[in-house]
Nucleic acid binder design. Structure first.
Lengths: 198, 198
DNA sequence: AGGCCTATTGACCGGGTGGTCAAAACAATA
DNA sequence: TATTGTTTTGACCACCCGGTCAATAGGCCT
């Protein structure tokens, strides 16, 4: 019979099992029983600790976001003198992160798709997206300030949206079509568009 | 009892019902029985016409792609003298299409996400993506030819990938976060990046 | 009218689902 | 050791799923 274990530890174990199942089969096919089996635990215990599948799924999303270390503007990036270089470094960093945590990224996109029909998920994802956009907007504002003549009629919001599109469009393509997608080539093209004034 | 109806007609009816169900509940929750109920038909009939849920789902994807009229380069676009203008017009057209067929777009992205774990779907989506990329690559090659000094080190493939990212990143954002996403602002920003040499 | 072919149905099956519950195993404490 | 309080379990429930099948209803041809 399973040993008695502190609640927090069990929860973590179960969340890791849920992550494994979600990576293997997708969140859509995630079932309480499959998670329980992965954690070598009865399915009733999972419901005991999480109350319902719904909350398990939401807690997994939180666990996922917490483990993604997303969009941290490091000192390395902050010290670039030109806004354009900071933007480029940030794009590069984010693309590297996406490709180094492919499971996290894939799962996050899956939640994203679910959000289209699931309000609680949509709200949570939206908040995370807002953080993302805000960070990019800050850099874009610096860019507009440092090169006022370069981007005629463009707003920081619009440019930030474009940057976020780059990241996510790239993530989506890399997810479904990794063979045809070349990160370096992509970055070079972006540099060609954003940085060719330098 | 339901009336006798020619096979092709029934198939179309059922596919439309499947589309409605998929739009309402998502493809993940699409069930043979729900589709049958939507089409006011017994669930055995759905299986009679499509053989299995699997094939129903794949046929729905085909039906979806067929009805999307995706990426048709019209004469209006082809007649712009400058490659840059053609690119811009194409981007504008595609974004307009995405926002005018929101259900189609959302469903297509859902299939896309499914493709990560479903080979048959992935293959089909990949082929469609290839068409997309090819069309953009053609325009990008013209762009590189007409302004050789503008995009240093960039390849047509890389630029095409960026363009596709624009479209899809934009679609993804608009899907989950329509409030914060402004198509016009986005396009202005893109124009600022691609078209500011003119 | 009668026969034939196909579209259509309802009943059924095995299996998986989320969720509940009483009983049991366990650890800590008195 | 006896009590208490928290995990943990297995059995169980009602429900939905995809799929099969024999029976039937309906249109078409002779």
């Amino acid at each position: 019979m399973g040993k008695r274990i502190a609640e927090a530890v069990r929860r973590e174990q179960i969340l890791e099992a849920a992550f494994a199942v979600a990576c293997r089969d997708g969140i859509g096919r995630l079932s309480v029983r499959a998670v329980a089996a992965e954690a070598r635990v009865s399915h009733a215990l999972v419901l005991f600790h999480f109350g319902s599948k719904q909350r398990l799924v939401m807690d997994l999303l939180e666990w996922l976001i917490g483990g993604m270390a997303v969009l941290h503007i490091s000192d390395d990036i902050a010290h670039f003198p030109h806004a354009r270089d900071r933007l480029h470094a940030l794009l590069q960093q984010e693309m590297a992160r996406l490709s180094h945590q492919p499971e996290h990224t894939r799962l996050f996109l899956e939640y994203w798709a679910m959000g289209a029909r699931h309000e609680e998920i949509r709200t949570r994802i939206s908040a995370e997206l807002e953080r993302y956009r805000t960070a990019f907007r800050a850099i874009m504002e610096e860019l507009l300030l440092s090169e006022p003549a370069a981007f005629v009629d463009a707003t920081a919001d619009g440019l930030a949206a474009v940057a976020v599109s780059w990241i996510h469009g790239c993530a989506v393509q890399a997810m479904v079509d990794p063979i045809h997608f070349d990160t370096d080539e992509y970055l070079t093209a972006v540099r060609g568009m954003v940085g060719r004034l330098g």
